[in-house]
Amino acid sequence: MTALALFLEAAAGMLWNVVTVSYRQRLIPDDLLGRVNSVYRFFGWGAMPFGAMGAGALVAVMTPAVGRTNALHAPYLIGGAVCLLLLIFAAARLRFEAS
Rank of each mutant, 00 (worst) to 15 (best):
Gly56Trp: 01
Ile88Leu: 10
Ala47Gly: 11
Gly44Thr: 13
Arg95Trp: 04
Leu58Lys: 00
Glu97Leu: 07
Leu94Glu: 03
His73Leu: 15
Thr63Gln: 15
Arg95Ala: 10
Phe42Gly: 00
Val39Tyr: 14
Pro49Gly: 07
Leu87Thr: 12
Trp45Val: 12
Pro64Ile: 12
Gly54Tyr: 09
Phe96Gly: 01
Ala52Asp: 04
Val39Gln: 14
Arg41Leu: 15
Ala71Ser: 14
Leu85Gln: 03
Gly44His: 12
Ala90Tyr: 15
Ala60Tyr: 08
Pro64Gly: 08
Phe50Tyr: 05
Asn70Ser: 10
Pro49Thr: 09
Gly67Tyr: 12
Ile88Ala: 13
Ala71Pro: 13
Glu97Phe: 03
Gly51Asn: 10
Gly54Phe: 14
Phe50Val: 09
Phe42Lys: 01
Leu94Gly: 00
Gly67Asn: 11
Met62Pro: 06
Tyr40Gln: 15
Ala52Thr: 04
Ala57Leu: 15
Leu86His: 04
Pro49Asn: 05
Leu84Cys: 07
Leu86Lys: 04
Gly67Trp: 12
Gly54Trp: 09
Leu58Ile: 14
Cys83Thr: 04
Leu58Thr: 08
Pro64Arg: 06
Arg93Tyr: 04
Thr63Met: 05
Ile78Gly: 00
Ala74Trp: 05
Ala92Asp: 08
Arg41Met: 15
Pro64Glu: 10
Val61Tyr: 10
Phe42Ala: 03
Leu84Ala: 13
Ala55Ser: 15
Phe96Glu: 02
Ala92Gln: 14
Leu86Asn: 11
Arg93Val: 08
Gly51Thr: 07
Ala74Pro: 03
Phe96Tyr: 14
Thr69Phe: 01
Ser38His: 08
Ala91Thr: 14
Glu97Arg: 12
Ala90Lys: 06
Phe50Pro: 03
Gly44Lys: 05
Ile88Ser: 01
Tyr40Met: 14
Met62His: 07
Cys83Tyr: 06
Ala57Ser: 12
Gly54Lys: 02
Ala60Cys: 02
Ala90Glu: 04
Phe42Trp: 03
Gly56Pro: 05
Thr69Glu: 09
Tyr40Asn: 13
Phe89Trp: 15
Trp45Cys: 02
Phe42Arg: 02
Leu85Cys: 11
Asn37Met: 14
Val39Arg: 03
Thr69Trp: 00
Leu87Ala: 13
Ala57His: 13
Thr69Tyr: 04
Asn70Cys: 00
Ala60Asp: 10
Asn70Ala: 14
